[in-house]
């Protein structure tokens, strides 16, 4: 049984061992049959949101800045992560949770940089949920005063609805896609705090209209921040690294006091 939640399996698999316990849902013995209405009034995402809140508290307690990277498949999220980790080496500790339907290729690419990475295979699932991330956080280090990068399943639709406990969703749009993606898939751009326009080194060869893409995205989300970069050439990477470092500073500044510890029969507060 899971330590976090006492759950059964949820279909997702983790690449570092099995997770095959289960529990039975039981029905109560039928009594006298009579129809009645039971008020529920609960959000469909209430369980996910409860796990997300728990993840957020665990992250806050360690002053760890967590990002949920979302995009369509092939936008260059993994390359962006690899290049980001290389540039942050020696400055910030980074752990990575990788979500894909199958294979552990992405986690292997991250591990090659020396950063700890855990692959979640969602099987038929089209997104990560907060429960999967809660378990993943038990299995890789949540770096104190560092960064947890969660690379979601490549999908511009479903991951928008699922809070994982991250500080921000970062949507990656590559310039090889259409500039109208933000209005075609508005929920993702509405849920994100930052949009990264990736592969900008290819702009001279494409008809992609950067201004139009940004205007479409801000039509959906007026407060959306935008960084244009190329993970391959390195142009614009510094702005992204500065953005991350600002997030880490803010995660540390808002870190709660660790709690209380008993010393000689009195309560003494201890700080990080």
């Amino acid at each position: 049984m899971c330590i976090t939640c006492g759950c059964g399996g949820d279909g997702a698999t983790f690449d570092a061992g099995s997770h095959d316990h289960s529990h039975d849902h039981h029905s109560h013995a039928p009594g006298v049959s009579a129809s009645r209405i039971v008020e529920i009034e609960q959000d469909l995402l209430s369980k996910n949101n409860a796990f997300a809140e728990n993840n957020r508290q665990r992250l806050a307690a360690r002053g760890c800045f967590a990002l949920n990277l979302v995009s369509s498949p092939g936008s260059g999220k993994t390359t962006l992560l690899v290049e980001t980790i290389k540039r942050l080496q020696g400055r910030l500790a980074v752990s990575v949770i990788e979500g894909d339907q199958q294979t552990s290729q992405d986690a292997e690419r991250i591990r090659a940089t020396g950063a700890p990475a855990l692959q979640i295979n969602t099987g038929k699932g089209c997104h990560l949920d907060a429960h999967m991330v809660a378990h993943a956080m038990e299995r890789i280090p949540v770096p104190e005063g560092g960064v947890l990068m969660i690379e979601n399943v490549g999908n511009l639709v479903c991951p928008a609805a699922f809070d994982l406990g991250e500080a921000c969703k970062v949507v990656v749009l590559s310039v090889t896609e259409g500039e109208d993606k933000p209005i075609k898939y508005p929920d993702m751009f509405a849920a994100a705090s930052l949009m990264i326009l990736n592969k900008c080194d290819l702009l001279p060869y494409l008809d992609f209209d950067v201004e139009a893409a940004i205007a479409f995205a801000r039509r959906i989300n007026p407060g959306l921040q935008v960084i244009q970069l190329s993970a391959r050439s390195g142009d614009g990477m510094q702005e992204w690294l500065d953005w991350i470092e600002k997030g880490v500073v803010s995660a540390q500044a808002t870190r709660p006091a660790s709690g209380y510890v008993r010393v000689s029969g009195t309560s003494a507060r201890f700080h990080r």
């Binding site: 039928p30 009594g31 006298v32 049959s33 009579a34 129809s35 009645r36 209405i37 039971v38 008020e39 529920i40 009034e41 609960q42 959000d43 469909l44």
Partner: peptide, 9 residues
């Protein structure tokens, strides 16, 4: 939201 359900005992 799940508003309500109609059930049988």
């Amino acid at each position: 939201r799940v508003k309500a359900i109609v059930v049988e005992d």
